[in-house]
Nucleic acid binder design. Structure first.
Lengths: 338, 338
DNA sequence: ATGAAAGCGCTAACAG
DNA sequence: CTGTTAGCGCTTTCAT
């Protein structure tokens, strides 16, 4: 059996209340008693039992974090932000991966409540009605992070994807491009992709060009590679000079195809991505892209929760984080209009 | 205040023991009583308080995981393995990142003990005497994972890096290469790098060649790029045909340099990596490399801990996981001896 | 400044 | 099968 507060009290010849007081520094204790207690703690190697403490104080100092898959890079960045800020406030995080299963998400939500977490952050890629319902009727501090959908019913923080897409378009247009393709994905119901498409169309309209939207069914590298042929055709037919891809993976896949077919990026055509995945800065040419601040997303989420927990004034209702354009090599100024 | 077991008992008109019994299914309960309890739980939305439960049962069902940095890809893979297996046994994990600080590691270790975790897995990149001491004198189930160092004093699982390096050398030699460079890093004290060097030297000796070891100070991409000149020189002078890099990042950096200087991989020279980072399968040419099974490392670690916890017979003392060679495009058969 | 005692929510004997 | 009771280890009144 581990050493308890009683053992310390006995050795120090004081009551357990006194021991508690020196541990928590909650009430004045005479120097002499304090000394004895400290000494007893030292010799016994006493470590307070947080479980018992939680039971009485009703503070677990635990934040539950349910993610889609911790193995995904952007998720681990979010978690990193959560963890680092949580730590500053003395909070630990308890982590679960749902692997995109709605039932699992709900199960974990409940499980975490039973563990008395003081707040829950859910990082999901699906919209889960049951979760929405559960959160509404339970009263834990909650934050919902979803990089694909906006769920206005839940407290969340979003990224300003529309403005990011607009920024990229401005950049491309500044570079002299006019015939710009936007490579998007099939699942058009993704709210956020919709916003990006809108920004793209508006930008094209602003320079009096018709949008050239190319849809693909697969938004991984493979999809980017396979659409290469079509892009080359468009280059011949319509004289396109730049391709803005809705995902970095797509851009890399496309550049692979271009490379394999002797087309040079950015000399023959410019390619822009979205996401700033790891490879983006490693691939040759390095990829001009949009960087989403996932670390900050996590950090701000937990900070909001923590502030509520400690009763600090809450900031504005809904935060929208700005997104950065990362200028690299894959996009280039156009010298002459084709 | 949340609804407790008492509320349920009252509504169901039974004692709290009976409620406890149906919750835990620990003792027979009459159908009628059970029905009433279940109904009461339902209407009240009762969720047991795990903290209170832990206090009496002395089972927290928590495993502490202290990692170097959850943002690193290999770390998140390990955590994924831990989490997924832990889940199967009903264990949650509580996660902390130490960012390589020895004091922090120790602090977290203690913190987790106070939270009554039943086991701790430490994923570190440093060797920390204090941790070793602490673990020795405390009696939590423990597992130490370090991809750079072997610390035989602590329970751990290692990867068979020596055999992996040997395997790669065999592969290269099978391809007809003889003048093979091993690109290693400066910090030679890294036990695991030592093993790889040994395997390399043995392989070279076995074909009667002198080892050609190139050391660099920076094992990131940048380092690989900068050493490119030297590699090209060796190619001219000694006719080397393959470079085995101790890290994928190095290999990618080197291939960048080669690409920038018009040298084709694998036609002009073969490049092999180590680690199978994400980029390895995306970069062109795709990188032939060694894949370390980090997911498995996590999975097996926690499984060992869990088995001890539930008193199952423990397997062999020290597990050494095999490592796979991933054959891709960056290494090629040599047609003629130069 | 300090101790006694109550109680956090729950499980586990112990009677019955 | 069921209720009563005694804690688990700790914080927190309430006296003193």
């Amino acid at each position: 059996m581990a050493v308890t507060i009683k053992d310390v009290a006995k050795l120090a010849q004081v009551s357990i209340s006194t021991v508690s007081r020196v541990i928590n520094d909650s009430k004045p204790v005479s120097p002499e008693a304090r000394r004895r207690v400290l000494h007893a703690i030292e010799t016994l190697g006493y470590e307070p039992n947080e479980v018992a403490r939680s039971l009485v104080t009703k503070k677990s100092n635990l934040i539950g974090v349910i993610v889609d898959d911790i193995g995904r890079a952007y998720v681990s960045q979010i978690v990193r932000g959560i963890e680092e800020i949580g730590r500053m406030y003395g909070y630990d995080i308890i982590l679960s991966s749902s692997y995109g299963d709605a039932e699992t998400e709900l199960k974990f939500l409940q499980l975490m409540k039973t563990k008395q977490v003081e707040g829950i952050i859910l990082v999901s890629e699906i919209v889960n009605e049951k979760v929405v319902d559960y959160i509404k009727k339970t009263k834990v501090e909650f934050m919902y992070l979803n990089r694909y959908y906006n769920v206005p019913e839940l407290p969340t923080i979003s990224l300003d994807n529309k403005r990011a897409a607009a920024k990229m378009m401005d950049y491309l247009i500044d570079l002299g491009h006019r015939k710009i393709v936007y490579l998007t994905q099939e699942k058009l119901d993704l709210a956020i992709e919709q916003e990006k498409i809108k920004a793209y169309k508006e930008a094209m309209a602003s320079i009096g060009e018709d949008p050239i939207l190319v849809q693909i069914d697969n938004y991984l590298m493979d999809g980017g590679y396979k659409i290469g042929r079509e892009i080359l055709r468009l280059k011949e037919e319509k004289g396109i000079t730049a391709v803005f891809c809705c995902h970095d993976e797509l851009a890399i896949g496309l550049m692979n195809y271009l490379y394999d077919n002797g087309v040079h990026v950015p000399d023959d055509i410019s390619v822009a991505g979205y996401g700033d995945i790891n490879v983006a800065s490693i691939y040759r040419p390095t990829l001009t892209t949009i960087k989403e601040p996932f670390y900050d997303l996590g950090a701000i989420s937990i900070r909001k929760i923590l502030k509520k927990l400690i009763g600090e004034p809450i900031d504005e209702a809904h935060i929208v984080l700005p997104i950065r354009l990362i200028e690299r090599e894959s996009c280039k100024k156009i010298s002459q209009e084709a």
